[in-house]
Design a protein around this nucleic acid. Structure first.
Lengths: 193, 193
DNA sequence: ACCACAGTGGACCCTCTGGTCCAGAAAACG
DNA sequence: CGTTTTCTGGACCAGAGGGTCCACTGTGGT
């Protein structure tokens, strides 16, 4: 499929419009027609740019959102080289999800893409990259002698990922951000020894 | 609505049949008709026992499954009075979710009940009870002098809940149980001081 | 025995939604 | 220019799935 500049723009408009819609409150039951309306496009265009329909479109949006998750944590996530940096990172994560509140674009997307392989792949990749950055952060702290070398960086980063995911999930169903805070703080405290 | 003994039995059969079906692999897109077929009932019966239809039925199943989550952790969850007991509890949680694998009845249910107040209430209640048991366990360890009194039992239990939820979610999308293990182990290690 | 009401089966309906199709407008390109 | 390709609009289709209805059967109480 050839895409002209105009075509690229429209395609992007669809993705970003959908992403933006998912950040609104009642996006639980998104439909292609919702997205069509929001983005001011037509059925024809949606299937022109996403021939495989719903799944392809939603996967594209999911990738877009997954990128956002990581980039929203920058520059902190890539520079976890001091305790102050870890604190800044922690704060940025909490701020991000506090702002997001009970809505969760990726969560809605996963609900729509009923556990298709593609969906798992997007989430898997995201978690992998995320954890890998954290693992690197822990290792750097160890090299700098700020974290005892007996700590298993892989394990700590896995626990952080789990804590964040779970904290966000609790936030989604209870609106309460304290679980996320507690999980992050306790693992970081563990790191401090 | 009056229910005879037979009626009660049928109603229960529907709930348990649905729950069992949700534990199978491809339950992502459950439909009332699936449940009807599995439980050997008719449309008439389903709406007879669950007048509000899908939502009422699925909420009933969700409550059933939520009970299961807690009772599967017994008797360990209610007797967290020694390190050995904590280990046993940890092992029972991991065993349960390892066995469950990538399927997650409550997860599927939540996907269907698109964030209705009822769904949030079921999950909220479950998490509350769960965390409250854990908090009690931590407090008892403190009273026994096994955990330093400076530890905030509420925070630790919140972190455990978050870690478990997140660990299970990772398990669902990657099939990997190590995140769950890491989260539990690290928070328990933190408790050990 | 009778009656009222619960239990059961299944045909039927209706909406919602993903997906198809095609015709016309607008670009790209020679 | 002319033609070929892409872009856009929207009518239309088909299947799925939740929900309704009603007739029939079983059951419990008096």
């Amino acid at each position: 499929m050839k895409l002209t500049v105009k075509g690229q723009a429209t395609r992007q408009r669809i993705i970003e419009g959908a992403a933006s819609y998912l950040r609104s409150d009642d996006a639980a039951g998104v439909t292609l027609d919702d997205i069509r309306a929001i983005t001011g496009t037509s059925k024809g265009q949606i299937f022109h740019y996403f021939p495989d329909g719903k799944e392809e479109l939603f996967l594209a949006v999911a990738r877009f959102e997954a990128d956002r998750v990581l980039s929203d944590q920058q520059p902190h996530l890539s520079a976890l080289t001091s305790w102050a940096a870890w604190e800044r990172w922690r704060d940025s994560v909490i701020a991000r999800y506090r702002a997001q509140g009970r809505t969760c674009p990726l969560g809605v997307l996963m609900g729509q893409l009923n556990s298709t392989p593609g969906a798992h792949e997007v989430i898997g990749t995201l978690l992998e990259q995320w954890q890998s950055e954290l693992r690197r952060g822990v290792a750097e702290m160890q090299q700098a002698g700020l974290v005892r070398s007996g700590v298993d960086a892989g394990r700590v980063s896995a626990a952080l990922i789990a804590g964040i995911q779970g904290g966000v999930q609790v936030l989604r169903s209870t609106g309460d951000v304290t679980h996320l805070e507690a999980a992050l703080d306790i693992v970081i405290d563990y790191l401090r020894g």
